[in-house]
Design a protein around this nucleic acid. Structure first.
Lengths: 146, 146
DNA sequence: TCCTTGTAGTTGCATATACAACTTTACAAC
DNA sequence: GTTGTAAAGTTGTATATGCAACTACAAGGA
């Protein structure tokens, strides 16, 4: 970064999140057009649960890099949509274990299809090795700052 | 993308915006620690105005890739903080021209210093050419989707 | 001049986020 | 056992976003 600091202007788009906004809007739009009524934030929770059910809210907060207060309200909304349920952990009554409902589980394939579609739309004209470098760079940024 | 679709799992972090969240939080934190009381969203508006004053809200919406409704409320808050003012355009009374106040103008150097600091923190251990590729990739993503 | 159509901006409503303060429960030290 | 501390989750408050519906104004044509 030592020398690119002098051309920082070039990099401020990193800070304004235009690419993220664009991708997040398109993901939401693709979900809607496929008849899936979830937000892109709810998607990230569901994605974690498709990988592993019975996570605590704290664990979901860690995995999705959100505040636990955000998780509380995301789970409220997902529970209201009957996609997940809270189950109080009998071994530790402070924690809720979050499980998918049948409806939540059945959304998986349709959502993944739309996620893949969104990525494909986003990455048109981008070479595979550039995708890889971009991904690794964003991962490093995340690790540097978290 | 044709073949990387098969490793899509690797790229879903693109869709969850963890890197963006991390960078946006750090930017806000750096502003706060420098005694600057603005959000990272307000920063993007101010940055546009430091480049060019007297923009309409619609022009700010285009440049920052936000809905005009978001701009309405960002300008409300920036006006309340006395960093910008709305001036009705005499030539077209539908439009507001947004100008910086003296306080808004004087924030520039301090904000840019914190923006540069944030970028430097984010990009530790990232090679300059990888930064460039990541930046170009995000730009292409933005263009593909907007 | 009047009418139609388009544009700029605002408001209502639902969702999402951060931070601080709070409740409830667990657990270790004494 | 009692106490102190820490962890998980919730709630209040302020900010930000998207979409739809709305107001106000502009501009062109009949």
């Amino acid at each position: 970064m030592s020398d690119s600091i002098f051309q920082a202007k070039e990099f401020y788009d990193f800070l304004t999140g235009k690419a993220y906004t664009a991708i997040s809007r398109r993901l939401h739009k693709n979900f809607r057009e496929a008849g899936i009524d979830i937000t892109s934030e709810q998607w990230s929770i569901l994605y974690s649960l498709w990988e592993e059910e019975g996570l605590t809210q704290q664990e979901l907060a860690t995995r999705t890099f959100r505040e636990k207060t955000a998780i509380t309200r995301l789970i409220n909304n997902l529970e209201r949509s009957q996609l997940v349920i809270r189950v109080v952990d009998k071994a530790d009554r402070r924690t809720n274990l979050i499980y998918l409902t049948k409806a939540g589980r059945s959304l998986r394939e349709k959502c993944l299809a739309q996620a893949n579609k969104t990525l494909a739309e986003a990455l048109i004209h981008v070479k595979d090795d550039h995708v890889r470098i971009a991904k690794d760079t964003l991962k490093t940024v995340y690790e540097n700052l978290s």
